[in-house]
Amino acid sequence: MNAFRLAGDITHLISILVLLLKIYATKSCSGISLKTQELYAVVFLARYLDLFTDFISVYNSVMKVVFILSSVAIVWCMRRHRAVKRSYDKELDTFRHYYLVGACFVFALLVHEKFTFQEVFWAFSIYLEAVAIIPQLVLLQRSGNVDNLTGQYVFFLGAYRALYILNWIYRYFTEAKFSRWIACISGLVQTALYADFFYYYFLSWKNNAKLNLPA
């Protein structure tokens, strides 16, 4: 495992910790899209079906379990916890995420590495992860200003994607037969979705001002 990949996994982990911290410390999930969180829970559950069939490393298995449990816990909190539930911006979080799930599944049935149960679900999870951030970005755009922890959450998620791209570039040049075009193309699409957010995040950081997304 190269440094980019490790840094990518760590920023991914940090993003989840930032989100858990926000929910736990403020007992509020305002600014967070439940739809995006639900999509991530589906992404991890669909992708890590191999948890019991293919052992790669302890690191790999532990991270998989952490991602599944944390994403399910976040969804559970936002739906069931009394105080957290109250702070949810339901009227702003109206993106129809079921369409994304349907479209990604159909796409996975058409484009996959192998037509097996696990491989189709793996491809599905890759496509769904690429677009899962959309409801969150739409919510931020609608609410206009973004609180610090929410901004940092999205920033770390974006950083994770960017580091994965560096990881693939590194692997492409260092590994003899490195080809994973499904993951790479989806990853590029996913990272591109963050470009706009990153632009405004950078501006607010440079001007030392609160993060504001123009409508």
Binding site: D9, D50, D54, I56, N60, M63, E113, R180
Partner: peptide
């Protein structure tokens, strides 16, 4: 091993 290594990323 080849199969497993294919999805070695998270």
């Amino acid at each position: 091993a080849e199969e497993a290594a294919k999805h070695d990323e998270l």
